[in-house]
């Protein structure tokens, strides 16, 4: 390791030592180089060491059968290398397949339920309305709350003897009482409700910001032409809101695929295993708690590729126009 450092270090360090005659251009180029190294270097080292390297290591570990708290040397032991057996096991496991299903169910439910809801509320809040600022503020509050705090609060409210059931009782709706988080047949929908409560505010704020970019003149012109409020929203506002909706959908999809903390905090391990496991919770459960770092790493790699595939496909199909120039220009 020191040997690698020796040539590289001095070479860069020796750069500024100028040869007389061609002093100015060289020194300014060298100086620029040092500046770049100094500015980018630390961040690059952190990025390589704490993001890229672990990603590569996870891919390596996923090919091994490793005990908890393994040593580096154990990678070289015979029988440790199992090739793609961990991946095979993951796709053969009904638990993991169900976890993937849960992720996609939450993904589609978010798009189909949260999206229209957020657009509708944003359109309403965009009209002149008494107490509009206060309303906007209120709607954004859940998003500002820490995930764990919101999760614990809902967990307490949704206990069998908790606030939600007590409220239903006092409203005379006692027959609607449920073991919200303890009944595997409804736990996933309870969880989805909590997620909607938490993230709807973010979607609404995003849509409201998008609505600010829709020129009022268009609506006015349409109104003069005799268009109703509905027609204006349908044919002018929402199409112009398109880029915002597509970006929101992208964020929502990634969030649904990576979903971990809300599930971990609110749902008891038993019910989680039966009904609300996601790819990320399954990964932590198997990799950390069941003491199988190799298998857990394989799950991580699968999660990575599923997210990547979804992101790429979505970018191709939906985001292409929106991002034209923003992302692609720098690369080409």
């Amino acid at each position: 390791m020191t040997a690698t450092l020796q040539p590289a270090g001095p070479a860069t360090a020796a750069g500024p030592a100028p040869t007389p005659g061609r002093r100015r251009p060289r020194s300014s180029a060298a100086r620029q180089r040092i500046e770049i190294v100094l500015l980018v270097g630390p961040a690059l080292i952190l990025f390589l060491g704490f993001v890229i390297l672990p990603v590569i290591l996870a891919a390596v570990y996923s090919l091994y059968n490793l005990p908890p708290a393994f040593r580096w040397e154990q990678l070289a032991e015979p029988d440790r290398f199992v090739g793609l057996a961990n991946y095979q096991r993951a796709f053969d496991s009904p638990e993991f397949v169900r976890a993937i299903g849960n992720n996609f169910l939450i993904l589609f439910a978010s798009l189909l339920i949260q999206g229209p809801l957020a657009i509708g509320i944003a359109l309403l809040l965009n009209r002149p309305l008494r107490g509009r600022t206060a309303l906007r503020l209120l709607i954004f509050v859940p998003y500002v709350l820490a995930e764990v705090i919101a999760g614990l609060a809902w967990k307490l409210l949704l206990q069998p003897e908790g606030g939600v059931n007590a409220m239903l009782e006092s409203l005379g709706l006692g027959f609607l009482q449920q073991n919200w988080l303890a009944d595997p047949s409804i736990a996933l929908w309870t969880l989805f409700w909590i997620l909607t409560w938490k993230y709807l505010g973010f979607a609404i704020i995003l849509m409201l910001a998008g609505l600010q970019g829709v020129p009022e003149e268009l609506a006015e012109a349409a109104a003069i032409d005799g268009a109703s409020w509905w027609q204006i929203q349908r044919h002018i506002t929402i199409p112009l809101l398109g880029p915002t909706i597509r970006i929101w959908a992208f964020l929502s999809m990634i969030g649904a695929l990576q979903l971990f903390d809300m599930v971990w905090v609110t749902v008891a391990p038993t019910v989680r295993g039966m009904a609300t496991e996601t790819m990320a919770t399954y990964m932590v459960q198997q990799g950390q708690f069941a003491g199988q770092p190799g298998y857990g790493s394989a799950i991580a790699v699968i999660l990575f590729f599923i997210s990547l595939a979804v992101a790429l496909i979505y970018q191709r199909l939906a985001l292409r126009r929106d991002l034209a120039g923003a992302v692609t220009r720098g690369v080409r």
Binding site: L5, G9, T12, V40, G41, I45, G49
Partner: peptide, 10 residues
């Protein structure tokens, strides 16, 4: 250079 420094740090 960055890689070498990283290795050295490690």
């Amino acid at each position: 250079f960055a890689a070498a420094t990283g290795l050295a740090v490690a």
